[in-house]
Design a protein around this nucleic acid. Sequence first.
DNA 1: CACCAGGCAAGTA
DNA 2: TACTTGCATGGT
Length: 220
Amino acid sequence: MKSTKDRLLEIFYTLLQSFGKRYWWPGESALEIIVGAVLTQNTAWKNVEKAINNLKREHLLTVEALYHIDTERLSNLIMPSGFFNIKTRRLKNLIKVLYEIYDASIENLEKIETYELRKTLIDINGIGKETADSILLYALNRPVFVVDAYTKRFLKNHTPPLIEEIDIKKDSYDTIQRFFMEHLPQDVYIYNEYHALIVYLCQKCCKKIPECEICPIKGI
DNA sequence: CACCAGGCAAGTA
DNA sequence: TACTTGCATGGT
């Protein structure tokens, strides 16, 4: 009987071999990833790209520019990503911390201990656990596992079960995160690729469950 | 036409 | 603690 740790790793390497590296997170800078993390809340990535491109075209992807930009102008630029009024507020809240506390320098974030930084991020109105962890992992390369709707769907659909279903149902972000982190090496590369592969898997074939014939990890 | 997408906060019971 | 709702565009 395989251990849960062995199964999780086997699933990882099988997904990696089947689908290849996902190259997450798309973005040319840490700030672009941070901004994208807010814009993609409950939103298709395709729409986020339009918003990001709007900001890039206007050379607004700097902490200074986003701090000083007029609220209405920012709303118009990020409109394609939806929820633009609330996302403008959320971006401003986040940028305000980066500008006023961290002196507009992403590099100053490097000095902060991971879980202290996580708490700081979550304390910002508009930044929840998933957004904070996405920033930590994908923008700042911290070994933090990101849990999202796909992760829950993956756990819920996978057979044989990896974790008791009862733990998946409620608001179980911390439980699921702990599950992955306690059963996997604490490794930024693995966390990065694993989350991206789960998303790809769900977008590719999880929708066909329970009879997904092309699922490469069936039975593991 | 309906439904969903790489969430979160605020309100209610 | 556990549900429910508003937020909004764009693709299928």
